[in-house]
Design a protein around this nucleic acid. Structure first.
Lengths: 112, 112
DNA sequence: TTATATACCTAATATTCTTATGTATATAAT
DNA sequence: ATTATATACATAAGAATATTAGGTATATAA
């Protein structure tokens, strides 16, 4: 697990990227997928994730659909057309930022 | 200039890395050096930088020395032994984090 | 029957940054 | 001369985002 300050500001980018690649996902599913893909190095907390999902829905970046699964409720989120554009921009910006940081921190370059 | 949320959490890492490479630097000098090295893509604000420098000094990561230059005051900061260790840890952690993000966001790998 | 996993949510608090403001000297431009 | 910009420090109010902790509820494994 990384120090919390390191991950700050990357939540939206991660969520938008994952949602852009799948038809729809629900909150809990996102936390598990990120945990799995990062081998537990990035753990999204619900207190950060849910408010962010609500905010992105309010901004028109995501649409939500509540579904009953057995007796439980799931809220599936999908990326809107606007959201897909923003997702690409965020990923591109992050890539650019990493290149800048690689130079600034004197690391060996890696994204080509 | 990157969106502010992207840069969040990287300030200490940047400052510690720069200070580790030089004997000593003062706050304004750090802002200018980062601006120069990143071609203006990362601009450190004074409201973020100075409190962080004070905090790191209080934590024993940095030592400060006030110097009169003409009629102006400069506060030179140096990294302590503890600080150098933390600087290395932070840079290593950031490199690891970037690799994780590269995988998670499906980017082409770059740090080798 | 107790713990863990699934699945949502919010509120108080903490952290960190932005924005704005203040002080003061030095220098370049009009 | 005077105005703008650069140098150089600092803090304080507010915004944004995350942590921590708590709440509700069902399903399943121990």
């Amino acid at each position: 697990m990384y120090s919390s300050e390191l991950i700050k500001g990357t939540l939206k980018t991660i969520v938008l990227k994952l949602l852009s690649e799948s038809d729809k996902m629900y909150g809990y599913e996102i936390t598990q997928k990120v945990k799995e893909l990062t081998a537990g190095k990035i753990l999204l907390t619900e207190g950060a994730l849910y408010p962010t999902l609500h905010a992105m829905e309010a901004e028109g970046i995501l649409t939500a659909e509540a579904v009953n699964v057995g007796n439980r409720i799931r809220k599936y989120y999908s990326v809107t057309k606007t959201g897909k554009k923003i997702a690409k921009e965020k990923v591109n910006e992050f890539e650019d930022f990493m290149n800048t940081m690689i130079f600034l921190l004197g690391l060996k370059p890696k994204i080509g």
